[in-house]
């Protein structure tokens, strides 16, 4: 698969982000559309809370655009729960054709990529892409009970409580999706579920180096290179892998997992992770930078670790995927 240049750039006409209290307390806290003080969003279970976050994120994105759900042709949604229930239950109130996606933490970019292609193909004119993750639902499904006491590994990351929604369209105002590069699944043998940054970095480096090779461009030709949730650990690995591929990315490369929390004050070890991490940082921070003219172009790379608690228990190593979208002002 080679780099796809859209016939006509697809516009990101609206976006919204909903987060929990730790994300609100972070450096980007003021940029999010809504935050909840106890991470429950008025619900009785964490799973319901995450579904509610998706509903709120899409509602806010629709309201900002000034449309109701009839204006949207399809919604692509995903999360980290078994069978993507946060998405299906959360988006139940909307009368929009629904497609559930699973790309682990790469789902935010997977949704943007697929939506852009379908709009470019002409069958759809407006598609919403919504993803979420919740720290408590992820802890329950992937790690330990919430009140279980343990020391966390230095490479471990903190699953972001957040939902992000973007609405893509064949016209209108907003940042433009210009180029796309779908990722290949990649497994370089990391099998520690507390070290996902290292497990995902090879997929991200593969996608990014292919992009540069095929387009004949260099890291300096783009405003920012942003990965989804490699965290501080994955950032180091990514820089080294890109160096081995012959590219120096240190000048303009960053990762959403490094931006969302204040590492000095918060005990988050290697940074943030989860579908919500790249989704809310892109929807609140980077889209604003693009739309307000502080950033010309960016490569957004969604990174996903494709393991389940079952494969981890069976000792399999962790495959990963990374999708790339070039978004310009």
């Amino acid at each position: 698969m080679s780099v796809i240049t859209l016939k006509k750039p697809v516009r990101i006409i609206s976006s919204a982000s909903v987060v929990g209290r730790h994300e609100h307390a972070g450096p980007l806290g003021g940029l999010f559309d809504f935050w909840d003080a106890d991470d429950a969003f008025g619900m009785d279970t964490w799973e319901h809370a995450e579904a509610e976050m998706q509903r709120m994120a899409l509602t806010f994105a629709l309201n900002k655009y000034g449309a109701d759900d009839r204006a949207i042709d399809a919604v692509f949604a995903g999360d980290l729960m078994n069978q993507c229930t946060s998405s299906s239950y959360g988006l139940l109130p909307f009368d929009i054709p629904y497609f559930g996606l699973y790309g682990a933490c790469s789902t935010a970019v997977e949704g943007i990529l697929l939506a852009s292609l379908l709009i470019d193909g002409g069958h759809f004119s407006r598609i919403a892409s919504v993803v979420s993750s919740h720290n408590c639902t992820a802890e329950r499904q992937y790690r330990t009970p919430i009140e279980y006491g343990s020391l966390r590994a230095q490479t471990s990351q903190w699953t972001v409580t957040g939902a992000g929604a973007v609405i893509l369209a064949d016209g209108g105002d907003g940042a433009k999706v210009e180029k796309l590069l779908p990722g290949r699944t990649f497994d370089l043998g990391i099998n520690d579920p507390a070290d996902m940054g290292a497990a995902m970095a090879p997929a991200a480096a593969d996608t990014l180096s292919r992009y540069f090779r095929e387009t004949g461009t260099l890291p300096r030709d783009v405003g920012k290179i942003v990965t989804g949730d490699l965290g501080f650990r994955g950032y180091e690995m990514m820089v080294e892998l890109m160096h081995r591929e012959g590219y120096d990315v240190t000048n303009n490369y960053t990762d959403c997992g490094m931006l969302i929390y204040n590492r000095e004050k918060a005990d988050v070890h290697s940074g943030g992770s989860g579908c919500g991490c790249s989704a809310v940082v892109f929807a609140s921070h980077f889209l604003r930078e693009l739309n307000e003219g502080r950033l010309d172009s960016m490569l957004l790379i969604g990174t996903g670790a494709l393991m389940s608690p079952l494969t981890v228990a069976q000792g399999d190593s962790i495959p990963a995927v990374a999708h790339l979208a070039k978004v310009v002002r």
Binding site: G20, R21, H22, A25, D38, D39, W46, N135, C136, E139, P145, I146, E147, W158, T161, Y261, K265, A266, D267, V268
Partner: peptide, 9 residues
């Protein structure tokens, strides 16, 4: 009921 984990160092 379970409380969300704290982040403060």
């Amino acid at each position: 009921r379970a409380r969300p984990k704290e982040q403060i160092k």
